[in-house]
């Protein structure tokens, strides 16, 4: 399930593994997958199924060439401007790198068996490319298009040329070498938005700046005091799952 949960072993997530352990240690030998919670207290210490924060600062999925393109591409989708940082500065490229390197990139929870006819728009994702391979193939094809059209790779084009390329991608005018064009572009917009607005624990939305820009207070859990304050601005600095500036002890 969560990319951050386990390394390599895609057969069980942690919860399933706990359950499965009980099955094998079952004293009766029958299929008693009933866990320790049965007839006991349901709360147990140290069992919370939490995510592991994304750490590090090096790309593990993108090659240098791919990263060069992606860093510029995400900034076309959400550019830096006077309102605040663009997607790259917010960590979105890094977020995408870790997403594509993990379960999501490998379509871990998806049904990925053939046959693979093309499908109708209403039938959704119908390519054997996992998201990781979708990006990898599309990135190569975009650079090829740029070299053919502008004699330069995407990352070295001017911003207005880059925007023209993104428009061409949106209008499905770029040959993506077998990658379904709309599938790729829709996913790119979705994943960049995810990196921009998700909890910083996944590597994007650095310093919760995207939340500050729109006025979302983040991973809070109690707004009872504000429900009937109609029309009033709520001035709460955002917090993330790992906390936030407002959690710092006073000097």
């Amino acid at each position: 399930m969560m990319s951050t949960k386990k390394s390599g072993n895609h057969n069980f997530n942690r919860r399933e593994f706990l359950g499965a352990m009980v099955v094998t240690s079952s004293a009766t030998g029958i299929a008693s997958a009933v866990q320790a919670f049965d007839k006991k207290e349901m709360w147990q210490p140290d069992r919370a199924d939490v995510v592991t924060p994304v750490r590090g600062d090096k790309y593990i999925f993108f090659t240098d060439d791919e990263a060069a393109l992606m860093e510029k591409l995400v900034d076309c989708i959400i550019p830096p401007d006077e309102l605040g940082p663009g997607a790259h500065q917010m960590g979105v490229t890094f977020f995408l790198d870790r997403q594509l390197a993990g379960d999501y990139g490998h379509a871990y929870s998806w049904y990925m068996q053939g046959p693979w006819p093309e499908g109708l728009p209403s039938q959704g994702y119908q390519t054997r490319l996992t998201p990781a391979m979708l990006y990898r193939s599309a990135i190569a094809a975009i650079d090829k298009y740029c070299v053919n059209t502008y004699k330069n790779k995407f990352s070295t084009l001017s911003i207005s040329e880059q925007n023209d390329v993104v428009s061409a991608l949106e209008n499905q005018q770029v040959d993506l070498d077998g990658v379904p064009r709309k599938t790729f572009f829709d996913r790119l917009l979705q994943n960049v938005t995810e990196g921009y607005f998700s909890d910083p624990i996944y590597g994007g939305n650095r310093n919760m700046t995207a939340w500050k820009m729109i006025g979302f207070p983040g991973a809070r859990y109690n707004y009872r005091a504000y429900v009937t304050k109609h029309g009033e601005k709520i001035s709460l600095a955002p917090v993330g799952i790992m906390g936030g500036p407002s959690w710092k002890a006073k000097a």
């Binding site: 399930m1 349901m42 929870s109 998806w110």
Partner: peptide, 28 residues
Amino acid sequence: DTSTDFAVTFAQDELRYYWRGALYEQPS
């Protein structure tokens, strides 16, 4: 259950629960 799977300390995770479907059936 609540304390292990969606406690208030980590339940507000949009990417994990909605977009990556932590509580949903897996098409695989």
